[in-house]
Design a binder for these strands. Structure first.
Lengths: 205, 205
DNA sequence: CTCCCATGTAGACGTCGTCTACATTGCGCG
DNA sequence: CGCGCAATGTAGACGACGTCTACATGGGAG
């Protein structure tokens, strides 16, 4: 119970607290509404304190984005590793892991797709993005080697395969296209979408 | 040649000039960098002048977004109307028109997908979005009536069909996923992506 | 021709990011 | 055990921004 909000001169874990609170603010109000001074107020530190941990606002967002890509990659891989050794079933599982994560983690996903974040990318962010891209691309290539869209180029097939969960998550999150989507229906919804990209109905036992 | 930059007291067409300049700024620097004061400077008017035409920054973006959805709808429909009377070929043409427009109009597309814009939507924007959605949905339903993915629900098929061009455009525009894409290769690239969603290779004459 | 109101100006206010000078304190080294 | 430095937090300043208000201008309807 470190519940006391009274702070000694040094916060002690301000960096982590900033990142956590930032995710909450983005979840509730969007990236645009995130301010360093607001975070400082929420955490009872002075308005300049965040600058000790992040050179500027973009740096904080970049850090958040790097975490997000890595989390998204983990969520994508997690289901694949539990799947049987069939490239189609594996990619289908990855797609479902990807889309489920993107829908359930609105704030982190919105940071990933926020154009202003990527503009000021550092090495860490670029590396995280590359890791994700390589992970998916390899799985896409494996399905094509197993007969999926043999006439397509790998580049196009890869872009298409990525575009579906990215686009679907974007549309689901878009305020003007909001569709009712209960937690109960999420799995079935995700499975139906991904089945259209990487069908496995005739493969499952 | 209305090249003289000297302005009489009244600009005369400030509203249109603001919208046009805003699109240029977004194209070059992104939505985040757009400021009303910057636009005023660029157009040699006082910092408060834009407020006579747009209640606030969001209102300007909302106007831009309404235009963008309508333009995107026109681009989507334009090719379809020149296509033969086959629902698959028609939807394929719409997809190519959609994706081509989204790639070629980076600034307007980025406004469309910007989360902060939709949050303050007015009736005009919502109506434009609805028109677009209805246009696509009808075309999707027509293909399903013609045997495309008969086992899927229309909601899922519609979301999937929309997600591909939305997601593909997003990925193409994403600074960290930038792929070389020359104007010459654009048509072939777009055609290949859309062929994966709405195949027509075995239908064309 | 005259007057009204749409349009533009000028200044003020509060917020933000960020810089700088200063305060505090945890921790490593003697 | 205690000293001193570097990490961390504070306080104030500056310029930019959005937006409000009071005022200025002039095009066009009557």
């Amino acid at each position: 119970m470190t519940g006391s909000t009274s702070r000694s001169y040094h916060h002690g874990a301000l960096r982590d607290a900033l990142l956590q609170r930032a995710a909450e603010v983005i979840e509730a109000q969007g990236v645009e509404r995130l301010t360093l001074r607001g975070l400082a107020r929420d955490l009872n530190v002075s308005h300049g304190a965040p600058n000790r941990h992040f050179a500027n606002r973009e740096a904080l967002l970049t850090t958040l984005a790097t975490d997000a890509w890595e989390q998204m990659r983990q969520a994508t891989l997690a289901r694949a590793e539990a799947a049987p050794d069939d490239s189609w079933i594996r990619l289908n599982a990855m797609g479902r892991g990807f889309l489920t994560w993107a829908i359930q983690n609105r704030s982190l996903f919105s940071v990933i797709v926020h154009p202003d974040v990527a503009r000021y990318a550092g090495e860490a962010l670029e590396a995280a993005v590359d890791r994700f891209q390589e992970t998916v691309r390899a799985a896409v290539a494996a399905t094509q080697a197993n007969g999926r869209h043999p006439q397509a180029t790998l580049d196009a097939l890869n872009l298409y395969t990525n575009a579906v969960p990215f686009g679907a998550a974007m549309l689901v999150h878009h305020p003007l296209l909001a569709r009712p989507l209960t937690d109960a229906s999420l799995d079935a919804f995700v499975a139906e979408i991904i089945e259209l990209v990487v069908p496995i109905a005739d493969r499952a036992g």
